[in-house]
Nucleic acid binder design. Structure first.
Length: 420
RNA sequence: GUGGGUGUAGCUCAGUUGGUUAGAGUGCCGGGUUGUGGCCCCGGAGGCCGAGGGUUCAAAUCCCUUCACUCACCCCA
């Protein structure tokens, strides 16, 4: 009979990969907590309308990538393609804005987008998502970015590239949009098919095009920063000043635009050369109107999303290997009486929180020793017929290859001390 | 949605003028004298060569179809 396989683009995460994931998550909890964030857990399923209104009807995500279905033929539901809209929904639904002026939240979990899978891109993927809801103080932007880079550094990631830009606000972006449109309109024959389409849907995205002829045109195009209003320019300069205060190196990238409609003012990405085409590990930015557009008060927000699969792929191998820890003790036995004794001891120690392994198959001492070595056990306890008869056991230090005798009545106590 | 690449042992891969029982490394199991790991040596298990069809005396190898995986475009984390 044929086995049933996982759905395309949906991956199992197996050990030892899961060790890496737990390390990433534990580090996130620790770092975010220090910066005053609290964890929020939100549903995987939301009403479709939430994402249409939140992310934007004309975005690729909403237009063609969402897992949307009718629940019992009645209500349109969608597996969340991102976390921000859900967090804002919960924030409003539970009136968190009334409880405090600044709310810092984060969540970790799977997102779903029906794209063609490739390296660093899956249909179910995972994000670590943070949001700060409250006043649009530029120090908040800098603080969030600072926390992000601290987190990435703590995971041992190197050669990261932080790019920032300001997309302006409702007052200044339309002017830029007009400028770029009129610039491109005269050069339509030189643009690629995709860019011609972008001209209609989202002209700013032409900046992202990798086609050479388009890039050439874009290099001469008007740039967003030149169109920022006084308020946006001032805000962006203060963000940069704060980043410099912490000696945080960053690249100003006037051509970085982002694919979600809600971003305003500060946007940023962290990229790396290690990931092939999907080089963005983190993306984020400020959104001035999302809370209001979802029916809430006029509160600004800023957040970022980290791709966990991409992050895990970047963790240096040496760091990942260091996560592999062996048991404290392996118990090797010979004979039924020893096996029974070991079985009792082994599980007793485990219940004290000590990692102990043993073999139940009654194999040769040699193969049990091999197993202990393979597992990277710090110690091996040898318990044979001879030892049982003499009421003792041999405790072998696997690193120094030395062994001592321990009386059976003092065994548990001795091992417990080793664990300290 | 569009294009390229790849499917042979658990894993990484060899294997074309089509020709016996399909190989290596690694991992797994066992052994190298009677109860001691790493190095070394020996042995063993494990594959309808992705699936289906065709050509041929003969197909892992040639042809067609299909499926899966993968990389890239699009877009994004």
């Amino acid at each position: 009979m044929e086995i049933i396989t996982a759905v395309k683009g949906f991956k199992d995460i197996l050990p030892p990969e899961t060790d890496k994931w737990r390390h990433i998550e534990a580090t996130a909890h620790e770092v975010f907590c220090a910066f005053g964030f609290r964890e929020i857990r939100i549903p995987l399923l939301e009403k479709t309308e939430l994402f249409c209104r939140g992310i934007g009807e004309s975005t690729d995500i909403v237009e063609k990538e969402m897992y949307t279905f009718l629940d019992r033929g009645e209500e349109s539901l969608t597996l969340r393609p991102e976390a921000t809209a859900s967090i804002i929904r919960a924030y409003l639904e539970h009136t968190l804005h009334a409880a405090e002026t600044v709310t810092k939240l984060y969540t970790i979990g799977p997102m779903f987008r029906r794209e063609r899978p490739q390296k660093g891109r899956y249909r179910q993927f995972h994000q670590i998502d943070t949001e700060i809801l409250g006043p649009d103080d530029p120090r908040t932007d800098a603080e969030l970015i600072l926390m992000l880079l601290h987190f990435l550094n703590k995971l041992g990631l190197r050669k990261l590239n932080l790019e920032i830009n300001s997309l302006g606000c409702a007052a200044c972006r339309p002017a830029f949009r007009e400028a770029i449109l009129s610039y491109l309109r005269g050069r339509e024959e030189e643009l690629c098919g995709d860019c011609l389409r972008r001209l209609e849907t989202n002209p700013l995205r032409v900046f992202d095009c990798k086609v050479e002829t388009c890039a050439a045109i874009i290099s001469q195009a008007p740039l967003l920063p030149d169109f920022l209003c006084a308020g946006c320019r001032d805000h962006f300069e203060k963000v940069q000043a704060s980043l410099r205060l912490f000696n945080l190196p960053f690249h100003l990238n006037a051509k970085m635009v982002r694919g979600l409609d809600y971003y305003t003012r500060t946007t940023f990405e962290v990229t790396t050369e290690f990931l092939g085409a999907q080089n963005a590990v983190v993306g984020g930015g400020r959104y001035d109107h999302l809370v209001r557009d979802l029916g809430g008060p006029d509160i600004s927000g800023i957040g970022f999303a980290i791709g966990v699969e991409r992050l895990a792929a970047m963790i240096p191998k040496a760091d990942a290997d260091a996560l592999l820890q062996g048991p404290l003790l392996f118990i090797a036995t010979l004979g039924e009486a020893a096996l029974e004794k070991a079985f009792f001891l082994c599980n007793g120690l485990r219940m004290k929180g000590i990692r102990v392994e043993m073999d139940h198959a009654g194999r040769s001492l040699k193969s049990q020793m091999k197993r202990a070595d393979k597992l990277k056990s710090a110690y091996t306890l040898i318990l044979g017929e001879r030892e049982i008869a003499e009421n003792k056991a041999l405790l072998r230090n696997m690193l120094s290859s030395t062994q001592t005798e321990v009386g059976l009545d003092r065994l548990e106590e001795t091992i417990t001390e080793l664990a300290r």
